[in-house]
Simulated assay, not measured.
Amino acid sequence: MSTRPTRSDLLPIGEIARRTGLSVSAIRFYEDKGLIEPIRSSGGQRRFLRSDLRRVSFILIAQQLGLSLGEIRAELARLPHGRTPTARDWRAISAAIRARIDAQIAQLQRTRDRLDGCIGCGCLSLKTCAIYNPGDRLAAQGPGPRQIIGDDPPG
Rank of each mutant, 00 (worst) to 15 (best):
P5S: 04
T6Y: 02
R7V: 11
P12R: 09
E15L: 01
I16E: 01
A17D: 01
A17Q: 02
R19N: 04
G21Q: 08
G21P: 06
L22R: 10
L22N: 04
V24R: 14
I27N: 02
R28P: 03
Y30R: 04
D32N: 14
D32R: 15
E37T: 15
I39R: 14
S41C: 04
G44V: 02
Q45F: 12
Q45I: 01
R46K: 09
L49H: 13
L49D: 00
R50M: 00
D52T: 12
R54Y: 07
R54V: 00
I59W: 05
L60P: 00
L60F: 00
G66F: 10
G66K: 09
L67G: 05
L67H: 06
A74F: 07
L76R: 06
A77K: 12
P80Y: 11
P80E: 10
H81T: 13
R83I: 11
T84M: 10
A87N: 10
D89A: 08
R91F: 06
A96R: 15
R100F: 10
A106M: 03
Q107C: 10
R110N: 03
R112Q: 13
L115V: 05
G117Q: 08
I119A: 11
G120E: 13
L124K: 09
S125C: 10
S125I: 05
G135E: 08
G135P: 09
D136K: 13
L138W: 02
Q141R: 14
P143K: 12
P145I: 13
Q147E: 01
Q147H: 04
I148V: 15
G150A: 02
D152T: 09
P154G: 03
